[in-house]
Write a protein that binds this DNA or RNA. Structure first.
Lengths: 131, 131
DNA sequence: ATTACATTGTTATAATATAACAATAACAGA
DNA sequence: TCTGTTATTGTTATATTATAACAATGTAAT
C-alpha cells in the first residue's frame, strides 16, 4: 500500500491525503475546497487525480452518492470488485470486505454464461446507531 | 404491471412511455428533449416523474451511468434489489434477474451481522458482440 | 363549495463533471 | 547533454446532471 503511493504525482498525493484523512466519503467539490490552500484551484485538477486514484484502487467512488472514499481493504488488490454498505439515515458508508461475497460475485454467471470480474455493489439499510 | 400504471399521473406516463420504448438506458436530458413535444419543458417535470417511477420500481437508475432503464423484470416486486450487467465497450445494459443472486444478496450479512434488503449491483464487462 | 392534497408549470440556480489547449516536468534513449 | 516522448499541471470555459422555491392548477372527499 505504502509503496504504491510512491508513484503518485503531487496532485494525486494531495487529493489522496485529504480523502484518507476523512473517515467518510468526500464529494469532489468538498475535496477541491480543502485542497485550494495547497494550490489546486480548479475542478479538472481534482477530477484528474480522482480518476487516477480510482483507477489504481486507492479510492473508490460511491456511485449512488457521487462521493469518494479511501480504500481500507488491505487485501484490495482487486480494485474493481467493490462492495459497500450505506446507511440511508446518516449516510455512513463502510466498505465490505468479504472474500466469500467477492468470490461469489466474481464467479457469478448470467443466463448466457457470461462472467464479470468487475462489479460494484451498494447495500442500503439503517445502521445500528440510527436504529 | 399494467394495473400499476393506471395510478400514474400524466407526466409520469409520458416519461415512462419514452423510457419503455427505449431498449437501452436514457439520460434525463435526453428524455427531456424527447418529451418536449408533449409539453414537458423543464427539468423538474422530468426529474419528478423519474423519482416517482424509480420509487415504485417501474424504472431503475443505472447509477454509474446516470441513466434510467425500464424494469423488464416481471417478477420485480422487489423494486429495491437490482442487478445489471453493463458492457464497457458499447454501453449495452441488461437487467439481471436471477432469483439465486437476489436471494444470496438479500440474505447477505456483514461482519456485524447486519442484513440489507436493498441493494444495487452493477457488473461490468465486455459483451459478446464486442468480444 | 370547501378543504386538503398531489401534481404541474416555471424560473432560476446548484452541483457534478469534462473539453480544450498551453505550459511544465519527468525521463528514457541517442 | 540533448532530444524526443509522455505524463502531469494549470487554466478558462462550458457541458451535464439535478434541485430549490413558489405560484398555479387539478382532483377527490366531505
Amino acid at each position: 500500500m505504502a509503496q504504491k503511493k510512491e508513484y503518485l504525482s503531487k496532485n494525486q498525493k494531495i487529493v489522496l491525503d485529504i480523502i484518507e484523512k476523512s473517515a467518510q466519503p468526500m464529494k469532489a467539490y468538498s475535496i477541491l475546497f480543502n485542497v485550494q490552500k495547497k494550490g489546486l484551484k480548479a475542478p479538472p485538477q481534482v477530477y484528474r487525480a480522482l480518476d487516477k486514484l480510482v483507477e489504481i484502487g486507492k479510492i473508490h467512488k460511491i456511485e449512488s452518492r457521487n462521493a469518494f472514499i479511501a480504500c481500507r481493504n488491505s487485501a484490495c488488490t482487486i480494485t474493481n470488485a467493490t462492495a459497500f454498505s450505506i446507511c440511508e439515515s446518516c449516510e455512513y458508508v463502510k466498505e465490505i470486505s468479504s472474500s466469500k461475497l467477492s468470490k461469489y460475485l466474481s464467479n457469478f454467471q448470467d443466463k448466457e454464461g457470461m462472467k464479470y470480474n468487475k462489479y460494484n455493489l451498494e447495500f442500503f439499510g439503517i445502521c445500528k446507531k440510527c436504529k
